[in-house]
Computed example of a mutant assay.
Amino acid sequence: MRIFGSVIIALVSFVTTVPATASSLLDYVGECVPFARAASGIQIYGNAWTWWAQAGGRYKRGAAPRVGAVIVFEKSSKLRLGHVAVVSRVVTQRVVMVTHANWSRQNGERGHAEQDVTLTDVSARNDWTSVKVWYRDRDGLGGSIYPVYGFIYGSPDAEAARSIAKATPAPELTGRNPDYVGALIDAY
């Protein structure tokens, strides 16, 4: 019964976080924060760059990518509010695919969801503190390097486990046949 209750809470949490403007997670058009919340099940609010601090004491955090984890970009001159994306595939130690919203322009506008986008770790210590991201509108890996805080995982910290349901990633987080070869070519 306890497991069933947790599953129900996770499902209700997912359903209530899917942005009202989208019938499918991939039809979403809007900001990255509500999208990441719906795609990951991690219940954090506020500007993207604030997620890292807010996760402290609530969710486990770390420097290793895992499917369903939210990667938190720091606030910078290019990302005034930061950015959040959800890891959809781990390709290699330094290459992942993410599903996110409000990054590339599509049909001349920002905000659209993008599935299985290449993201590469370019940090000197191989610790995911600096990344480059694929741009659909440019059809290539961007030249900018973005600072990253790290990854927020769906499982709660031990102290918070009693009050937070485990986050469940959305089923649309990844596609059926992501282009691993393309992701590696993009990265290198």
Rank of each mutant, 00 (worst) to 15 (best):
S40I: 10
T16A: 12
K78Y: 11
A20H: 05
K166V: 08
Y153C: 04
K166P: 05
A69K: 09
L184C: 10
I44H: 09
F73T: 05
T92L: 07
S13M: 08
D27W: 07
F35K: 06
A101Q: 07
G108N: 06
G56R: 12
G150Y: 00
H112E: 03
L141E: 00
T21E: 13
V90T: 14
D179I: 04
S40F: 09
Y146V: 00
G57D: 15
E109P: 04
V181K: 06
A170C: 01
T174P: 03
A124P: 02
V181D: 14
A10Q: 11
V29G: 14
S88D: 09
A53D: 15
S23C: 04
V84N: 12
M97R: 13
V72I: 10
G182T: 08
A158D: 03
L11G: 05
F14Y: 14
G5Y: 07
G68A: 07
A36W: 05
W52I: 13
A55Y: 06
I42Q: 12
V12M: 09
Q93I: 05
P65N: 13
R80I: 12
D116F: 01
S77V: 10
G142N: 00
V117D: 02
R176N: 11
Y153M: 01
G111L: 01
K60H: 15
W103G: 01
V87G: 08
S104T: 11
R66S: 14
Q93S: 15
S88I: 09
V86S: 11
T99M: 08
G108T: 04
E74G: 13
P147Y: 00
C32M: 08
A124L: 08
R94C: 07
G108D: 05
I145R: 03
P171L: 02
P156K: 00
G62M: 13
G41S: 10
Y149H: 04
W128F: 02
H83S: 10
S40G: 12
R138C: 00
V7A: 11
A63M: 12
G62Y: 06
T168Q: 03
R105I: 02
H83D: 07
I164S: 02
D127R: 08
P65Y: 09
E114I: 06
T16V: 09
S40W: 13
W128P: 03
L119Q: 01
V84T: 09
A183Y: 10
T16S: 14
S6K: 15
I164T: 03
A36Q: 12
K132D: 01
Y153F: 02
S13I: 05
